[in-house]
């Protein structure tokens, strides 16, 4: 059977971004030592995306049953048995398709539903179950206000989607401003380099999530209305009250010098 419905397929495996434009970082780090950091998409999100590939189901070869053959073996045709069966000399569909006794959903349906709810959350900018908390040592952070299960969508890293040229221009501009933190998230999708700039203060929470090498979130790129978006997905079950964290991925010497917390 042909499947007509358009399914937004999982994004192509992402490649970790190689640190580029070191000079820029250096210059900017020196000029604005407040909070600049770069966020790089970690390669471990590969596993997550690869899992989403649609399983290929091969149809089972049906076992054909023929009552006639049975009857012939007996040497005569039993008219009573024949007429009892409303299907007559027709095969039955149950010979080809297995009867599903449970109402379990197929994996495809489950994935489709998940994708749909994710898209809806992105469209409506839903950021439920999260709250901003001030930490004495590191400033603002985001804490789970409810439990999240592994694989749940938690929050979007939202900002302006820009290309590398624009990103370079903006980084230079931000470097002039002592107070501007750097919230440039570089990532690669389909071989093309993008950046999400969340430097501007907004009500969205994704930009406030702190760093940890062993965070409880994963980043994933998904395509919505033809544009890549960055979403943070629960890597494990997250309990209410836990701070949500993910790996910024920046391990460059320069960044570590200014932000030793990136090592943890």
């Amino acid at each position: 059977m042909r499947h007509k419905r358009k399914v937004t397929t999982a994004p192509a495996p992402l490649t970790p971004v190689v640190q580029t434009r070191r000079q820029k970082m250096t210059c900017q780090d020196m000029l604005s030592p407040s909070t600049p950091h770069r966020i790089e998409l970690r390669s471990d999100s590969n596993e997550e995306t690869n899992n989403c590939k649609k399983p290929i189901i091969k149809p089972a070869q049906p076992v054909l049953k023929s009552r006639r053959r049975l009857n012939n073996n007996l040497g005569f045709i039993n008219p009573v048995q024949e007429s009892k069966n409303p299907a007559g000399d027709n095969h039955k569909l149950t010979e080809y398709f297995p009867v599903r006794r449970s109402v379990r959903k197929t994996k495809k349906t489950v994935l489709e539903e998940k994708q749909r709810s994710l898209e809806e959350a992105l469209r409506k900018e839903i950021e439920d179950g999260l709250e901003v908390r001030y930490f004495d040592d590191k400033g603002r952070g985001v804490v789970a206000a409810r439990d999240f299960c592994r694989g749940d969508f938690v929050v979007e890293y939202s900002g302006d989607l820009i290309d590398t040229i624009e990103a370079k221009r903006r980084e230079e501009q931000y470097a002039q401003d002592q107070n501007a933190g750097c919230y440039m998230y570089y990532f690669k999708y389909n071989g093309q380099q993008y950046c999400i700039d969340a430097t501007a203060e907004t009500s969205r929470l994704g930009r406030l999530v702190n760093h940890s090498r062993n965070g409880n979130l994963l980043t994933r790129t998904i395509i919505l209305d033809g544009k890549p978006r960055l979403v943070l997905i629960a890597k494990e079950d997250i309990k209410m009250g836990e701070e949500i964290l993910y790996d910024y991925g920046d391990r460059s010497k320069e960044s570590l010098k200014h932000h030793p917390w990136l090592a943890y």
Partner: peptide, 11 residues
């Protein structure tokens, strides 16, 4: 009602 599992098939 009996529900049948219908596999994806290339015809």
């Amino acid at each position: 009602q009996e529900h049948l599992g219908i596999p994806e098939t290339d015809f």
